[in-house]
């Protein structure tokens, strides 16, 4: 400690430290806080993705396991969960199933459960047994959890599941929500023998999940391919038996 320390001043040291502290606070406010908010909203969306898969599992139990009633409580944070009842007027998207001979021609308006995030543009929808995510205002969508359509090779059977969502009125909720669901009796559609080529058209004017459905229907599990026309039509040939199973789930409350 022989060095000359005449220039050392407590005031300068204090100003230096204060400057560092203020710079630090400034950086955190400018860059750190937005990252935190983004992280929070992406956590909310992630939780909601999981919650939607839970509801999808409940719906599967209602449809495939002969369970008459299900309820599950979930936390809807950072957004709103909305029920869009199916049917001709309310629902936006529709599935049209037809075959080459024209003896099958059924339209389904399955309705949906939709979550919209407040802070980000993410939209998660539970539509016709599939959990689909998309960004509001931009094209494209992806399927988080798939429905259970399948083509059975050895018996050449094509099985289509339609899961309608109905409710007495449109409902929306944020915060703690208890989704209470009941399976309604639907008259079974008898299997159609030798339909030839089966066509499925997905039609949605505003809520666009067409990319997700395209990727699902043309996946190896379902094995359809895109028809030349019209738009968003998929077809599968060499079908000996077409099975359309329609279920209706009533959302009693959320």
């Amino acid at each position: 400690m022989i060095a000359n320390d005449r220039a050392v001043s407590e005031a300068i040291g204090f100003i230096l430290i204060l400057g560092l502290v203020l710079t630090g606070i400034g950086l955190v406010t400018l860059y750190g806080y937005p990252v935190l908010v983004k992280e929070q909203s992406s956590t909310d969306v992630k939780n909601m993705e999981r919650a939607m898969i839970v509801i999808q599992n409940d719906m599967k139990s209602l449809c495939f396991k002969n369970v008459p009633y299900k309820e599950s409580t979930l936390q809807v944070s950072g957004g709103t969960l909305e029920v869009i009842p199916g049917g001709e007027e309310g629902a936006k998207s529709e599935f049209v199933i037809s075959n080459s001979e024209g003896e099958v021609n059924s339209e389904f308006h399955p309705g949906a459960l939709v979550y919209r995030s407040d802070r980000s543009t993410e939209v998660i929808a539970l539509e016709n047994g599939a959990v689909i995510t998309r960004q509001e205002g931009s094209a494209g969508s992806a399927m988080l959890a798939e429905p259970r359509w399948f083509y059975d090779g050895p018996t050449k059977t094509f099985v289509i599941y339609i899961m309608n969502v109905t409710a007495d009125e449109r409902m929306a909720k944020s915060g703690m929500a208890t989704v209470r669901m009941k399976r309604l009796a639907t008259s079974p559609i008898p299997p159609i023998e030798n339909p030839g080529t089966v066509k499925v058209m997905y039609n949605s004017p505003s809520d666009d999940h067409s990319v997700a459905w395209k990727n699902y229907l043309t996946s190896p599990m379902v094995g359809m391919r895109k028809a030349s026309s019209p738009l968003d039509t998929y077809e599968i040939s060499d079908v000996d038996k077409l099975v359309i199973k329609e279920y209706t789930i009533e959302i009693l409350s959320i």
Binding site: N66, T155, V159, K245
Partner: peptide
């Protein structure tokens, strides 16, 4: 099988 168990069997 198809109606109750949703399974295609042969």
């Amino acid at each position: 099988s198809l109606e109750r168990k949703n399974a295609v069997v042969s």
